[in-house]
Design a protein around this nucleic acid. Sequence first.
DNA 1: CGCATTTGACCTGCGC
DNA 2: GCGCAGGTCAAATGCG
Length: 232
Amino acid sequence: MILTGLHLVTGNTSSDQSIVDHDDETSPNSEDKREKNKLAVAKAELGRMINENQQLKEVLSQVTVKYNALQSHFATMMQQNQANEGGGGGEDMIAPRSFMDLSSGALVEGDENSQSSEEGRRSDEQSRSPEESHEQANKVQRLNSLKNSASNNIDQATEATIRKARVSVRARSEAPTIADGCQWRKYGQKMAKGNPCPRAYYRCTMATGCPVRKQVRLQRHFTQNKYLWHAI
DNA sequence: CGCATTTGACCTGCGC
DNA sequence: GCGCAGGTCAAATGCG
């Protein structure tokens, strides 16, 4: 099994250990003591989660403050840019993607774009054949259809801005990529219904075209102010 | 700059 | 036929 995250930190082991160490199996009240121990462990876990929650809140508030500062800064820049627009600059016209207005026009136009790409995809799949050469041809065809549909309604500059903002934070894995003799590359992760632990999908990259795939259940733990995933 | 990872969108099978 | 959930794709992102 591949370890996609970091080492499992069993957390609070010192406190938990001390509790367990005092468990006296020979005593007639051992059952009662065991229950108390369970309670103590649960309390410790609760305290840890409260602490974790507090840390998350702090991180969130910091991010919010920084975001607001950046947004106001951006608004100021845009105002300055509009004021200077008579000069015909243009070098300041690049708007940071993270400040796209996702709530209105950008989203609607993005849907149009995704529709057109979907059309390209459908036409692609209708003409698909087993040969890889055809696959390549289809890719070209799809690209062309994308270009054509885009040029009908929007220019390339607009196209660049209508893409939905995507925020991704990479969690580096300390685990080796090669395990059980295969080299795995992650190609997807999915939240399972009714389960807080996501499922990660890996494909073997030892050989080109290797069909071997596997899925791994991940468990999340919070350490060093960030969440990390590891295989269960 | 290349490549691995993230993640939203899309596809497909299944139960109703 | 519809909705849902699982699996896959691929653009965006970030690290070495």
